[in-house]
């Protein structure tokens, strides 16, 4: 039990449970299977982005461009299918290829050129969004072919919504990558002590490059689920998703300073953020107050992270 309380994601689990109890008391509409399944479906896209973001943040970087890259991969895939009539599986392939290519670009600039990730991806935030509009002529593309309707709002075996299935499979695989592969172990090593990692012979540059590629691929996967859910696509989708994704990672107990954290925490963080929004909708809290609340939650989460880090350094 003691080892459990030491886990970084423990706080997020407590927060999810406490908020769940509070919302059940506050709203008669919160605690039912339909709403809980809704929350998981609504959390799925942010959870996928947060998964990739976890890798980047663990190395001590940050990817501010995930919302824009989601828009780029989603808009191009939509454009290929609707305007050009290309096979949907090829379009899915193209989305992943673009995600990986942008990841390589970001990773190269961060790891090999040495530009801070904050700057590379802040530029990317507007660069990829602009490209998303430009490449697709600003069109809205709707009525996506199979398998998108199934991915977006179909149910596996007629009961489990597909976005939840994608999210669970993704998190199981990502936990495996992070706990049992070289990439996973080196990510922690690089994040906690980059110089040390280099001295023991880890090829820091290549692994750093790798985490941006992972994040880019996650954007493509998130885009596929997102455009399926909306049965449409355009360059304007996924506005400000980077904020929710980064917030989910931090709320999940992963340190913004790198080296400490867990993938499961990010899943809990994504669920927590979605629960906050869902609860505010059910309690009829207005748009502006919702924006303020989410912003405050992000600041508080980073605040907690800073306090935790100071305690660790004192030890």
């Amino acid at each position: 039990m003691k080892s459990l309380t030491r886990q970084e994601w423990y706080g997020a689990l407590i927060a999810v449970l406490v908020l769940g109890i509070l919302l059940s008391i506050a709203s008669p509409y919160f605690l039912n299977s339909r709403n809980l399944s809704n929350i998981l479906v609504q959390a799925s896209v942010i959870a996928l982005l947060a998964g990739g973001q976890t890798f980047v943040i663990l190395t001590g970087g940050v990817d501010l461009a995930v919302g824009s890259l989601t828009a780029l991969t989603g808009a191009v895939a939509g454009y290929m299918m609707i305007k050009l009539g290309i096979n949907p599986y090829l379009a899915i392939g193209a989305a992943f290829a673009i995600g990986a290519a942008v990841g390589l670009f970001n990773g190269y600039l961060v790891a090999f050129v040495g530009i801070p990730s904050f700057i590379v991806t802040l530029g990317g935030l507007t660069l990829w969004r602009g490209l998303a509009y430009d490449a697709t002529g600003g069109y809205d593309m709707s009525g996506l072919p199979a398998p998108f309707p199934f991915i977006g709002y179909g149910d596996l075996f007629g009961i489990i919504p597909m976005p939840i299935v994608v999210m669970v499979v993704f998190y199981v695989s990502m936990s495996f990558v992070l706990s049992s592969t070289k990439l996973g172990r080196y990510v922690y090593a690089i994040g906690s002590n980059e110089m040390g990692a280099r001295q023991v012979g880890i090829n820091v540059r290549w692994y750093k490059l790798g985490v941006y590629v992972v994040s880019g691929l996650c954007c493509a996967l998130a885009a596929i689920v997102l455009i399926g859910r909306m049965d449409s696509s355009s360059g304007k989708i996924a506005q400000m998703f980077e904020l929710d994704a980064i917030a989910a990672v931090i709320l999940g107990g992963t340190s913004l300073f790198g080296g400490r954290g867990s993938i499961i925490g990010s899943l809990l963080g994504a669920i927590l953020i979605t629960m906050i929004r869902n609860g505010m909708n059910l309690l009829e809290i207005s748009q502006f107050k919702q924006m303020m609340a989410i912003g405050a939650v992000v600041i508080i989460a980073v605040w907690i992270d800073v306090i935790r880090r100071k305690r660790l350094l004192r030890k």
Binding site: Y29, N32, R34, N35, N38, V41, Q42, V45, L226, R229, M230, S232, K236, I237, A238, Q239, M240, T274, R277, N278, N281, L282, E284, S286, Q287, Q290, M291
Partner: peptide, 25 residues
């Protein structure tokens, strides 16, 4: 009268609000 808005004109947030209002019956 419940008034809710899609933050930043974001479609996925509006989708979520509609779903939540179905739950809200």
């Amino acid at each position: 009268f419940i008034e809710l808005a899609a933050e930043k004109g974001e479609l996925s947030k509006q989708l979520a609000i509609v779903e939540d209002m179905i739950t809200r019956k």
